[in-house]
């Protein structure tokens, strides 16, 4: 379904994706795991074509999105749905209008049919009857569910989730996890999830890819990952502060750095 080949993306001197190769199989749930700053959101943005990589390819249905014309890219996008980290609902539209938005912009479906579709999608995420609410009146978990309903309203073939459970309470996390799995099964949607939530990822994933500072350090089924002998993978799964993944990111001496500043201000005085 989606194939990433030799993908490279850098921001200044930071390498966010370092020659990544991976594939996302059709109708399966693939979870991209990684700590903050490991490049997982960057990878997602390359796959969806929101950003262009420095080099490498992203094949979507055997079409290279990185070399596709704008028109083709936008055509393919109609087969994609995405749930954003902050839900990205349009604040000036109520729930109904938010979900109906892609339908109204892309199709000429009659208004009463649109109403039916929106009701069905809202039922799927368990929010039927709240059509008139504005996004500002919703809790974080409800916003994610509305965002999810909007993402699937065009019946996409692929759906991307950017940190779907971050900032949610345990029950909402469970609800979203179950929704991801249900939608995948019911609608046969290829699912790509970016997350750092180990517990819910293990519950929903068919395949897991673990990123560490722009490199893929492990990929495989949940069991394969659990039994991985890579110390970094184990540290990430157990969430231990001790291990090969360091806490500090700087290689300069702390006290030295402190005193260097003191020196400078002393010099200024003289």
């Amino acid at each position: 379904m989606i194939r990433v080949e030799n993908l490279v993306k850098t921001y200044g001197s930071t390498v966010a994706c370092n020659r990544l190769n991976c594939r996302f199989d059709a109708k399966k749930v693939t979870v991209i795991l990684g700590g903050s700053g490991s490049g997982k959101t960057t990878l997602l943005r390359q796959i969806t074509g929101l950003e262009k990589p420095d080099s490498g390819s992203v094949f979507f249905d055997d079409m290279d999105l990185t070399r596709a014309s704008k028109k083709d890219l936008y055509k393919k996008r109609k087969k994609m749905g995405m749930l954003f980290q902050g839900s990205a609902l349009f604040n000036y539209l109520n729930i109904f209008e938010n979900i109906a938005f892609p339908l109204r912009e892309h199709t000429r479906i009659a208004e009463n049919v649109i109403k039916n579709i929106v009701t069905m999608k809202l039922e799927m995420v368990g929010l039927r009857g709240n059509e008139h609410l504005m996004p500002s009146q919703l809790s974080g978990g409800m916003m994610k569910r509305v965002g999810l309903a909007r993402a699937i309203v065009m019946d996409p073939k692929v759906i991307f989730y950017d940190e779907p459970t971050s900032g949610l309470d345990p029950i909402s996390t469970g609800v979203i996890g179950k929704l991801i799995r249900d939608l995948n099964v019911k609608l046969d949607i290829t699912t790509v999830v970016v997350s750092h939530d180990i517990a819910s990822s293990f519950k929903i994933a068919d395949k897991i890819i673990i990123l560490y500072f722009g490199d893929i350090i492990a990929q495989g089924t949940v069991d394969q990952i659990k039994n991985s002998t890579d110390e970094r993978v184990q540290q990430f799964i157990t969430g231990s502060p001790e291990g090969p993944i360091p806490f500090t990111r700087t290689d300069t001496n702390y006290v030295e750095a402190l005193l260097a500043d003191t020196d400078k201000s002393m010099e200024k005085m003289s």
């Binding site: 969806t48 929101l50 996008r77 954003f84 990205a88």
Partner: peptide, 12 residues
């Protein structure tokens, strides 16, 4: 608010 990205993904 990521709404621009949301529009892009929707094909707009």
């Amino acid at each position: 608010n990521e709404e621009l990205d949301a529009l892009t993904i929707m094909g707009l």
